[in-house]
């Protein structure tokens, strides 16, 4: 599997997480390579009205630009976009972002499945998705579609995830390309960066 990855170039990495993910991401961020050849989108379940603090928290951990995903914004390599609380984040064919205030899905808004799905349908094999710790099944179906459309799929290792349910649920349903150790998330992202550069 690692072989095929070495040859693949991605333009976008989407990370979906719920309970127990944020801590892991905050730990990973300082060790990320600062010249990312792709964009990262974070879709995190959380309480409402915590947006500015979340962006500040994340920004403090990396030199990479971390911004809230604005509607109509063009996705650019080298930036990290955070889905705002209480809106779904969708990806358009022209690689711009859209926000949607429709019903919650899987009891969640933002819903990870929706971002995974719309990202998969536009980026196809130029996409990687990582599903992290959480007590929800959100993201599992979307990850399956990512796989169907030839994207790279990964989950945080349920053995060391704070809440194993979400990544385990994915493993029960599908074979993923990567099972990422909880303290190796940065490594995984840097590896994607490296292989994307090699094939650029």
């Amino acid at each position: 599997m690692a072989e095929s990855i070495n040859k693949s170039r991605i333009d976008l990495l989407v990370i979906g997480g719920s309970a127990g993910s944020l801590e892991v991401i905050l730990k990973a961020f300082p060790q990320l390579t600062t010249d990312l050849p792709f964009a990262i989108i974070l879709v995190l379940h959380r309480k409402q009205n915590t947006d500015t603090t979340l962006i500040d928290l994340l920004s403090a951990k990396t030199k990479i630009t971390v911004i809230e995903a604005n509607e109509k914004e063009l996705i650019k390599a080298g930036c990290i976009y955070v889905a705002p609380a209480d809106y779904h984040l969708l990806i358009e064919n022209d690689h711009t972002l859209s926000l949607d205030y429709s019903e919650k899905v899987n009891f969640s808004r933002p819903c990870i499945d929706i971002t995974f799905q719309t990202a998969a349908e536009t980026y196809k094999d130029r996409l990687a998705c990582l599903l992290m710790s959480g007590a929800s099944a959100d993201g599992v179906e979307g990850l399956e579609l990512v796989k169907t459309l030839q994207g790279i799929t990964a989950v945080q290792d349920p053995k060391t995830a704070e809440v194993s349910y979400m990544p385990q649920k994915a493993l029960d349903k599908m074979e993923v390309d990567y099972i990422v150790e909880t303290d190796k998330v940065f490594d995984f992202i840097n590896m994607l960066a490296k292989s994307s550069e090699l094939t650029a």
């Binding site: 509607e71 969708l90 990806i91 358009e92 064919n93 859209s98 949607d100 429709s102 929706i114 719309t118």
Partner: peptide
Amino acid sequence: YSKASIKRR
């Protein structure tokens, strides 16, 4: 209209 949302609907 933004396509991604209308497509979903």
